[in-house]
């Protein structure tokens, strides 16, 4: 069985099943897949019966399983229910939010806005995270920070300007030390 159990194209999922972490590696071929969970191998064939129902065969065991829900799904097998979610996706969603907070790559407003103040001028040496420009939109002020350390080569806006997302308000030349 050794060779047949080898996974060729490996996709890896880290799932949460009833708050328990389960890592699944699998290789899908149309209506079947081979999977490995911890040290266990699974030969699985499957077909969708209806929106909520799948018929699967796991290592020779025939099962009706039911699934419903969006990000966190309720999976029901033989009357036992499980809450299952994709731990990586959850993490990604979290870190995407984080990166929005911490890792911008250019100085541009998030939405149509008005420039309230410009805090740098050409030639300024700035550090990553320095306040560069303050804009106002929907009655909320937002400070745009330097995405990396460097030198301001050009300021493309002034106080009172109406600016749009995508407008690069300040050009910054990355300092080589930062690399």
């Amino acid at each position: 069985m050794g060779d047949t159990r080898k996974l060729e194209v490996i996709v890896e999922y880290n799932l949460l099943v009833n708050e328990e972490k389960v890592s699944v590696e699998f290789d899908q071929k149309q209506e079947s897949l081979k999977a490995q969970i911890n040290e266990k191998f699974y030969d699985v064939s499957f077909q969708r019966v209806s929106d909520s129902r799948l018929h699967i065969n796991v290592n020779g065991q025939s099962l009706n399983v039911y699934a419903g829900g969006d990000d966190t799904k309720t999976v029901i097998i033989n009357g036992r229910s499980f809450e299952v979610s994709d731990a990586d996706l959850m993490e990604q969603n979290k870190s995407r939010k984080k990166s929005m907070d911490k890792d911008p790559t250019e100085v541009t407003p998030p939405m149509p806005a008005v420039v309230i103040s410009v805090d740098v001028k050409e030639g300024d040496k700035i550090e990553k995270g320095d306040a560069v420009i303050v804009v106002s939109a929907m009655k909320m002020e937002n400070t745009l920070f330097a995405p990396f350390s460097g030198t301001v080569t050009k300021v493309n806006t002034k106080e009172g300007d109406k600016v749009m997302p995508g407008d690069i308000l300040v050009d910054i030349e990355k300092s080589e030390l930062d690399e």
Partner: peptide, 22 residues
């Protein structure tokens, strides 16, 4: 809830995603 069939629940979750265009 008892923890039997956790692996199969995980597989079912993945298969449900793989076949969701149906």
């Amino acid at each position: 809830p008892t923890s039997t069939n956790v692996d199969i629940a995980a597989l079912a979750f993945i298969i449900d995603g793989l076949t969701s265009n149906g």
